[in-house]
Design a protein around this nucleic acid. Structure first.
Lengths: 141, 141
DNA sequence: GTTCTTGCAAATACTTTGCATTGGC
DNA sequence: GCCAATGCAAAGTATTTGCAAGAAC
């Protein structure tokens, strides 16, 4: 199999099985954070079992292929981590709309926080999410 | 009833019922982010039902008395939001240890992100969590 | 008395796990 | 062929909800 999704998987040292290729294909196409349910709904029926989706996503995250987000919705969201790129999100607390914020300045802040801490030895990643109201939802109230 | 917890509740326009006072008392005492289960375990038996805890915490968060955190543990954590203070967290991904990081510099970043966005109208709050390994856990490996 | 809160139990949502089978490499 | 990945079903954990009883004002 030689789709873009399959290559993406192999490039990260992961087996390119049918369910995995299908999942990555959806992530490539949607380009937005998706929940497990979003993913399963977007797949042709029976392409991947729910357990397979959870296990695959965990493997992908470990391999650095995707990022896992927590936007306080009580469920995890996943998005492809494009090479070298690092961004955060604007989240509408009314409708759930998500917009990317490029340009992260947390690194320096994180470095200083680590230096100031007596109990922490290393920092590996961070999450920064901005919550507010989108223009559509402002109109509606 | 005139405990510190009860006053805390009334100051925020909330009824000071027995279960609520008990919950706030635990939050005042522990001074760290607690899960609902943590809270229930810390309460004398039968002080508050689980449903009451969830409903109270939701009301507290809405009133601005507490903050809800999501540290990717699959469950929400709650901590008192002390007046005027605003902080973030260092989280050990190995043992779950949490340390506060005072001194937040996200406001300016958030303002710029909002200005740069075509679709968002207002920003209300944000979350910034730093994930890494604490010194204790570094030793153990 | 009216309204908000609580307890209990059941329901729902998300995620994980055991195990036999399948399939990539 | 070997080992990892999958499907299915069941379990586990977190959170929400319906409803009758109770407490606050």
């Amino acid at each position: 199999m030689h789709t873009r999704a399959a290559d993406y998987l192999r490039d990260h040292g992961l087996k390119a099985t049918a369910p995995r290729v299908a999942i990555v294909a959806v992530l490539l196409k949607e380009k937005r954070p998706l929940s497990v349910q979003d993913l399963l709904d977007a797949l042709p029926k029976k392409t991947a079992d729910q357990a397979t989706a959870y296990r695959s996503l965990e493997a992908f995250a470990e391999a650095g292929l995707i990022h896992r987000l927590d936007l306080g919705q009580g469920k995890a969201l996943y998005e492809l981590s494009e090479e070298g790129e690092h961004h955060h999100h604007l989240v509408c607390t009314s409708c759930g709309k998500i917009e990317d914020v490029e340009d992260c300045e947390v690194e320096a802040f994180a470095r200083r926080a680590l230096e100031a801490s007596k109990r922490f030895a290393e920092l590996h990643h961070h999450s920064l999410e901005l919550f507010g109201i989108c223009k559509d939802c402002v109109k509606k109230r």
